[in-house]
């Protein structure tokens, strides 16, 4: 707004009868967010250097002992790597399943059907993870439909419970995060100019060649943002490993929850939180860089 010539209306707004209105309006959200978001976030960093006191309290210490403990412990190191692996496998699965699906929906001529398909995809998007994990627990339990069908098809020798397990966790994760991937890819695929694909086709390229040389490169932005989104969200899962997995399937977020909610060691929980935050931040930075690079190339 400020870069353009001010119109009459704007100049009136800027030279209001009550010139402090501008700061008065913003003071409410700014104060709330500073006091209850920025301050607690800074406090979390500070408390990660504090000492734990029995019973869920802490006292100032300003040591890096918690960080030394984290990076010196095979258990926590292992959980960090495991969490990254789970997030990686979830992201890759979502991409492999989500891309063809998004491509198919985007290619439908009927707007009604596109809407129907998208509605189904997002139908469970905001439903609590607890209910969605619970649904898979029911589906994968021993007397239930998935093991029964799998055993009658000969995939399983007998209908045994498939939950809790690593596989159940991944199935649940893909189920929960697929919508984010599909929606991001769908938007990106819809933005591709149809005439480019037509041009490629009319010049004699096979559909697969057109896809590889035209559609895929043009939707690279969607692939990067969708993957980043799913990866970052996957890193934070707490409920799914608790319901669909055993302790070997627990991720870093579960460990944070346990440190704080069960062990009552808040400084150490804060430390693991900061480490996880830094990982999330680093991934977002890489994604930002990749997307920025993409934009430079396309110009």
């Amino acid at each position: 707004m400020s870069t353009e010539e001010p119109t009459l209306g704007e100049s009136i707004i800027e030279n209001d009868i009550w010139p402090r209105t501008k700061y008065l309006i913003v003071s409410y959200p700014a104060a709330v967010l500073a006091l209850f978001f920025v301050l607690p976030l800074l406090l979390l960093v500070v408390v990660s250097t504090f000492e734990n006191i029995e019973g869920g309290f802490f006292q100032p210490a300003f040591t890096f002992e918690n960080y030394v403990r984290f990076f010196g412990s095979d258990l926590f190191q292992g959980r960090m790597i495991y969490t990254l692996q789970v997030a990686g496998l979830t992201t890759a699965s979502c991409l492999v399943i989500g891309y063809p699906l998004a491509y198919y929906i985007a290619s439908l001529d009927s707007e009604l059907w596109r809407r129907v398909y998208l509605s189904i995809i997002i139908s469970s998007l905001f439903l609590t993870f607890i209910i969605r994990a619970f649904a898979w627990q029911v589906l994968l339990s021993s007397d239930s439909i998935v093991p029964t069908v799998a055993s009658s098809l000969g995939i399983l020798q007998e209908p045994v419970a498939l939950v809790p397990s690593y596989m159940a966790l991944i199935v649940g994760m893909v189920y929960v995060f697929l919508p984010f991937m599909v929606l991001t890819l769908y938007t990106s695929i819809r933005e591709v100019d149809d005439s480019l694909q037509e041009a490629s086709r009319s010049l004699g390229a096979m559909p697969l060649t057109t896809f590889r040389n035209v559609t895929l490169p043009l939707t690279k932005g969607g692939i990067v943002s969708g993957s980043m989104l799913v990866f970052v969200l996957s890193l934070g899962v707490y409920v799914l490993p608790r319901i669909l997995g055993n302790p070997p399937q627990w991720t870093l977020a579960v460990l944070i929850g346990n440190q704080v909610g069960v062990e009552g060691n808040i400084p150490y929980g804060a430390t693991i939180s900061i480490v996880l935050l830094l990982v999330v931040g680093a991934i977002l930075a890489v994604g930002w860089y990749l997307l920025g690079g993409e934009r430079r190339v396309s110009i």
Binding site: P29, L33, A34, F36, F37, V38, L39, P40, L41, L43, L44, V47, G56, F57, F58, V232, L235, G236, Y238, A253, I256, G257, V260, I266, G269, A270, S273, L276, L277, V280, L284
Partner: peptide, 23 residues
């Protein structure tokens, strides 16, 4: 500040507020 909170892992938001309220 008005966009970031939803992008953080919820468990971290929980720990953050717990720390804040205990303090």
């Amino acid at each position: 500040a008005a966009t970031v909170p939803i992008m953080l892992p919820p468990v971290i938001v929980g720990v953050m507020f717990m720390t804040f309220f205990i303090t």
